[in-house]
Design a protein around this nucleic acid. Structure first.
Lengths: 135, 135
DNA sequence: TTAAATGCAAAAAATTTGCAGACGT
DNA sequence: ACGTCTGCAAATTTTTTGCATTTAA
């Protein structure tokens, strides 16, 4: 995954096979918990240790390379940092999807009534996905 | 706290001093983590055990009596269930406040693009509170 | 070559469980 | 009186840490 190697190097994070495995896995599955990540990587990389996954998730989070998604009622999931976006979760099958929504107006209002300088917005919607509605 | 006793009874949750202490504490401080709750209650009720706090938080969450607020970068906080609202967090001092915002339009859009039936909305804004801006 | 990363095992922290006795209804 | 709740201790689960060794640059 050439594109990630250079991104890691830019941030002066050493490129190790373990890190690439984490990044590739997240690039493919988008939202995974620590344990899911560990299990997935072990298949291709049996010697990886859970501690390494933890250390790297923490390190890459500090670098802003990875972000935590705190889904209500689920373990935290992790994703590669992309442009800001919201999440929609199926309460039925647990799936988490990205969704682009314009929060400009809401944020504006919030800033006005609260007098906070708002720097981040985290919106998570929960419901039933089309697939689960069908069945 | 008469009002909470009857609410608990309605949901067929036995009214114990420990439960009332939890509810009173949340009524006063609004957003507390498990550990904060435990420490606060111990002052008035030294014999309470941490396990009891956990059990009761879980029980009351199942009853919809209490809700978890998963603030980014902080331990989960708990609050008494009120009418739906959003949260605003100061990244500086850690304070969590309720804020009423109209998410109707955003939710509508989200439903349209995602084809989900949306049942819950969790919005957490992060920024710097007026007090921290001043100092 | 050298600082940083890995993997292991051990430690620490967070949460849950089992059970005897106490308590609310 | 009965079934639930409490508090304790122990068991699990989750996350972090220390350290000898390996590895990327």
């Amino acid at each position: 995954m050439q594109k990630y190697e250079s991104l890691l190097r830019e941030r002066k994070i050493k490129v190790t096979p373990q890190r690439l495995a984490i990044v590739e896995e997240l690039d493919g599955h988008i939202h995974l918990s620590i344990e899911e990540l560990y299990e997935a990587i072990k298949k291709k990389f049996p010697s990886i240790s859970l501690a390494t996954v933890y250390k790297n998730i923490n390190a890459m989070m500090e670098q802003g390379f990875i972000e935590e998604v705190r889904v209500p009622g689920q373990k935290s999931k992790y994703e590669l940092t992309k442009s800001p976006h919201s999440h929609i979760v199926c309460g039925h099958c647990g799936k988490v999807e990205d969704i682009d929504l314009d929060l400009e107006k809401v944020t504006q209002t919030a800033a006005n009534v609260s007098h906070y300088d708002i720097t981040e917005k985290t919106l998570i919607l929960t419901g039933v996905c089309p697939k689960c509605k069908a069945s």
